[in-house]
Simulated scan of single mutants.
Amino acid sequence: MSMQKSHEGEKQLLNINIKESKEYEQNEESKFKTRAKLYRFEKKENKWKERGVGDIQIFQHKTSKRCRVLMRREQTYKVCANHYPAKYIKFKQNEGNTKSWIYNAIDYSDGAAKDEILFIRFLKEESANKFKTVFEECVEINENLPKTEETTEETTEEKKEKTEETTEKKTEEKKETEEEKKETTEEKKETTEEKKEKTEETTEKKTEEKKETEEEKKETEEKK
């Protein structure tokens, strides 16, 4: 299953929010808001590329109670970050910079599910720490929501882990099967050798018996 299909449930919700109006945001409450600069890592070019400067917010929907991260560029108001806080996301600092965070997320700011490496630089260390705290609180909120068709969609990371576990299991099973085949082959070899030894013993015994019979016949003829 492709990443885009595996996140179809999230895509249906998040695509609503990519509109240039604040219509959907009116049904959300802001749990966090601050000005920041956002970058994403371009793998092909192997470098960080600026996504925009503006307010980054963490919203919670009034009805569904689901939380998401949204950032729009100032002036153009274009979405440059749009993803859910989820348990697979791990934060790390950029070379000890206490005013920034780097993390992976399945982001929908371009309208399709993309596994992005994001780098957010805040104005203050306090803002960076507050963002992480609220983000982690929202992870718990999202994880404890009633399971629906959308919320039961597996993340790319979870699918990756499952695939790796399945691959390891199949490799182990294949190894065990090969070992069993090897043991069976060795057993067959031993059986063949045993048969060969038995045949040789039988042949030797018959030869010995034949020799003894011939000697007995010879003695009998001499007595006559």
Rank of each mutant, 00 (worst) to 15 (best):
K132V: 15
Q75N: 15
Y39C: 04
E95T: 04
E179N: 10
S30C: 13
S64Y: 08
T220R: 12
W48S: 00
T202H: 08
K92I: 07
E179G: 02
Y108K: 02
E8S: 15
A36M: 08
K217I: 15
K206T: 07
E187M: 07
T184N: 14
T156H: 13
K49L: 10
V79Y: 01
K92F: 09
T34D: 09
K130L: 11
A113E: 02
H83P: 01
K90C: 07
K206G: 00
I120D: 03
K170C: 03
K206D: 05
F59D: 05
E178I: 06
E161P: 01
K211A: 12
E176Y: 08
K31A: 11
E180A: 12
L145T: 04
E168C: 00
I106Q: 10
F131R: 03
E10G: 00
C80A: 11
E197S: 06
E28Q: 13
K211D: 09
I141C: 14
E136V: 04
Q75S: 13
K182M: 08
L70Y: 12
E164M: 14
E28Y: 10
K188D: 09
I56W: 01
E197I: 03
K114R: 11
T185E: 15
K22W: 11
E197A: 08
K114N: 11
K175H: 10
Y24G: 06
E221N: 08
N144F: 09
E208M: 01
D107Q: 03
T34L: 03
Y77V: 03
D115G: 05
K223C: 02
K205L: 05
K198C: 03
K217L: 14
N82V: 01
K175E: 12
I106C: 15
N104G: 00
E183A: 12
